[in-house]
């Protein structure tokens, strides 16, 4: 881990490029959904278990798989087209590909219409956006896409994670080590809970609950009232 060069905040391709490079190996190490996300999905309901769920920053689709049990259609959005290919293969192998639509897109500029998602998860991806401005824009855009009253779970890495053990939020670069030993860096903004709460509260989202668990900050949020 090295301190990141904050740069001018306009480099919007680098995290995508990194995930394109590490997609396959990354996916192998991300097989199981997080218990916090499982709990949220199991508590979530949509009218008649129909409707559309959004998995923003879907990665290999491990959480889209949970959502596919709850709704007719899951839209998985990720900036890495390589990860989306992995997600597609995984969905075919595990039998939920009929319910899953995959779209390459930016979490701060979501390519979905207003009021198009009844339910959402946005797990471990917001922290890759390089500026506070882009992270807040992303939360606002999530609010736009959710139907009024639609719920979503947002998570980010927390400063209390054993990797960091710090007190206030900071920018950093965390290396990913490929099987051959090569390392590839990924930008993170690691949040303290108060800052995460402030960013959620400043957005167009309604905030139902904010908490920390296992080194991550979580927010259960709702679409605009």
């Amino acid at each position: 881990m090295t301190d990141a060069d904050p740069g001018d905040g306009t480099d919007r391709s680098s995290v995508r490029e990194t995930y394109d490079r590490i997609a396959e190996h990354f996916s192998q190490t991300r097989e199981h959904p997080w218990p916090e996300v499982r709990e949220f999905c199991e508590s979530a309901s949509t009218p008649d278990d129909s409707g559309t769920a959004l998995d923003l920053g879907c990665g290999n689709g491990r959480h889209a798989e949970l959502l596919a049990e709850r709704v007719d259609r899951v839209v998985g959005v990720d900036a890495s087209t390589e990860l989306l290919r992995v997600a597609r293969d995984r969905a075919v192998d595990r039998g939920y590909s009929d319910a899953l639509s995959l779209v390459a897109g930016d979490a701060a500029r979501i390519p979905l219409a207003a009021d198009s998602a009844d339910l959402g998860v946005y797990v471990a991806a917001l922290h890759h956006l390089p500026t506070r401005e882009s992270r807040r824009a992303s939360l606002d855009d999530l609010a736009r896409v959710l139907v009024p009253g639609g719920r979503a779970l947002v998570s980010v890495w927390a400063v209390t994670h054993s990797k960091f053990d710090r007190e206030s939020g900071f920018d950093t670069t965390v290396d990913w080590t490929l099987p051959g030993g090569e390392t590839v860096g990924r930008f993170y903004h690691v949040y303290d809970l108060a800052e995460f709460e402030a960013d959620c509260a400043a957005s167009a989202l309604g905030v139902e609950r904010i908490y920390e668990s296992e080194g991550n900050c979580y927010a259960v949020v709702t679409g605009p009232a």
Partner: peptide, 19 residues
């Protein structure tokens, strides 16, 4: 739309976009 996946990344985030 390539290999069945629509690429709706904004132009500044696409392959080959200046860093």
């Amino acid at each position: 739309i390539e290999e069945g996946i629509p690429n709706l990344l904004p132009p500044d985030m696409r392959e080959g976009a200046p860093a």
